[in-house]
Design a protein around this nucleic acid. Structure first.
Lengths: 217, 217
DNA sequence: CCTACCGATCGGTAGG
DNA sequence: CCTACCGATCGGTAGG
């Protein structure tokens, strides 16, 4: 029996499997490993073009294993997006607190928000937000509604800033449309910005502020 | 023989097939019909989520028939994009000529370009440009390069306008980054703008101009 | 979390 | 442009 078992179970790992880093071996966060690799792949190739097998392989698992952690591919996508929005909102709140938001003048407040938003789009490991921005179509209405709350909170932090700038004449456009277009200008940078290029995130923030705001009186 | 032919070819169309409009029946443009429905579906559902069977059904054909007109699904996508860019560029050139571009001052020139760009995004039947904007990932490098020429021509028309506005102080940001962000603000509207809503394309153009330009001196 | 597998769908094609 | 079809891939699952 023992001999038979030894023969039928060679107990050798397949060769091609990615080695696990120390961080990944720490147990309890296998789910997070799946989440992180899913975010990376969804960002790079898109949701539909990424198979759950791709994700499993990147996470060093067998093809069916992601479904132990997430009940469907769509649920995994939603988890990526929710993680993205939660983290982004938290980062924004922390950045505001760190800088003493209420002590800043409106233009400096906007610069802070813009600069931090670029960080959320391009910071190391920040693949979650771009996925959230560009894969809305692939989640259900109910999931979209759930995310809308977090997005509302995130955008809500911008509202008083934009209103103050509008009141002072430095933001000439209608506040609501301005907000939509500002986020468009920022979010679209995912399409063209390359961290290896000459421009820095500070350059981007400078250009954005110069673009949106009239000269101080 | 005649009788036999009659029996073996009942000549009745299957029931579920969409009826063809007079326009669609005119022969020679079956290819265009496929192209148009592909653009519509690619825009609504995305490239990967649209099957060639969806397209065939929408065009009133059998599942294999799109491949008579296009050698692959990707070639069909590229044809949609190329059609989009060609038409958009042509529309832009015509709008410029119609308005007597060189007689306008720079701010009015920008407004013309912006307003026309919104038309290219939201005009009736203009599904091609949004597909081009949002499905870049799904075409090959070579195809991207081919489109880059047309995009270069389209954006090139904006360049002198932005430079003039920069020189006069009404556009404060760096011209290159400003162009990228302006297109971002406009292109992102595909994500949120609803023609059935209160805002019109003119409202959008007004807001964009107010957002990007400082007050005239 | 792995093994082994299923049913469905999909892009594409030969031949007419 | 239709008919009939193929091979591959994919999301997902039962059972351990």
């Amino acid at each position: 029996m023992q001999a038979a078992a030894t023969v039928s179970a060679p107990a050798k790992r397949p060769r091609g499997r990615p080695r696990k880093t120390a961080d990944e071996r720490a147990d309890g966060n296998r789910r997070r490993i799946v989440l992180r690799h899913a975010a990376r792949l969804f960002r790079r190739k898109g949701f539909d073009a990424t198979s759950t097998r791709d994700i499993a392989a990147a996470a060093g698992m067998q093809s069916g294993s992601p479904f132990y952690h997430f009940k469907s591919k769509q649920a995994l996508l939603f988890a990526v997006m929710e993680e993205g929005m939660r983290t982004a909102l938290q980062q924004q709140r922390e950045a505001m607190a760190r800088a003493g938001m209420e002590t800043l003048e409106p233009a400096a407040q906007l610069r802070l928000l813009v600069r931090n938003h670029f960080e959320n789009l391009f910071g190391a490991g920040n693949d979650y937000v771009p996925v959230m921005l560009y894969e809305q179509r692939s989640i259900s209405r109910a999931q979209q509604a759930a995310l809308a709350e977090l997005k509302g909170a995130y955008e809500g932090d911008w509202e008083p800033v934009l209103r103050a700038l509008h009141a002072s004449g430095r933001l000439r456009a209608d506040v609501k449309l301005a907000r939509l277009m500002i986020f468009g200008a920022l979010n679209w940078s995912v399409q063209w910005f390359d961290r290896r290029g000459a421009a820095t995130l500070d350059d981007l923030a400078d250009a954005a502020l110069a673009l949106f705001l009239s000269e101080a009186p």
